[in-house]
Computed example of a mutant assay.
Amino acid sequence: MATDVVDLILADHRRFEELFRELRDRSADRAARLGELAALLVAHAEAEESEVYPALKRYKKVDNDEVDHGEEEHAEGHQALLALMEVTDPETEEWESKLEELVEALNHHVDEEERTLLNDAREQVADDRRTELGKAFAEARQALLDDDCGDLEYVRRIARATADRID
Rank of each mutant, 00 (worst) to 15 (best):
L23N: 00
L23G: 06
L23E: 05
R24G: 00
D25S: 09
D25P: 07
R26K: 15
R30Q: 10
A32M: 12
R33T: 09
R33P: 00
G35A: 08
E36K: 01
E36D: 11
L37A: 02
A38N: 07
A39Q: 08
V42C: 00
A43Q: 03
A45S: 15
A47Y: 07
E48K: 04
E48G: 05
E48M: 03
E49N: 13
Y53H: 15
Y53W: 13
L56V: 03
K57S: 12
R58E: 15
K60D: 14
K60N: 10
K61D: 12
V62Q: 01
N64L: 06
D65R: 14
H69C: 05
G70P: 05
G70S: 14
E71A: 13
E71V: 08
H74E: 05
Q79N: 10
A80K: 11
A80V: 06
L81K: 02
A83V: 02
L84E: 05
M85H: 06
M85C: 10
M85E: 02
D89F: 06
E91Q: 11
K98S: 04
L99E: 05
E100M: 06
V103L: 08
E104G: 02
L106G: 07
N107P: 03
H108I: 00
H108C: 06
H109D: 01
E112I: 03
E114C: 08
R115F: 07
R115P: 04
T116P: 01
L118G: 08
L118V: 02
N119V: 15
D120R: 14
R122E: 13
E123H: 10
V125I: 14
D127T: 15
D127L: 15
D128W: 10
R129G: 00
R130M: 10
R130I: 09
R130T: 10
E132M: 10
E132P: 07
K135N: 12
A136K: 12
F137W: 09
A138M: 10
E139T: 13
E139I: 10
A140W: 04
R141F: 06
R141Q: 14
A143R: 14
L145Y: 06
L145A: 04
D147W: 08
C149A: 14
E153R: 11
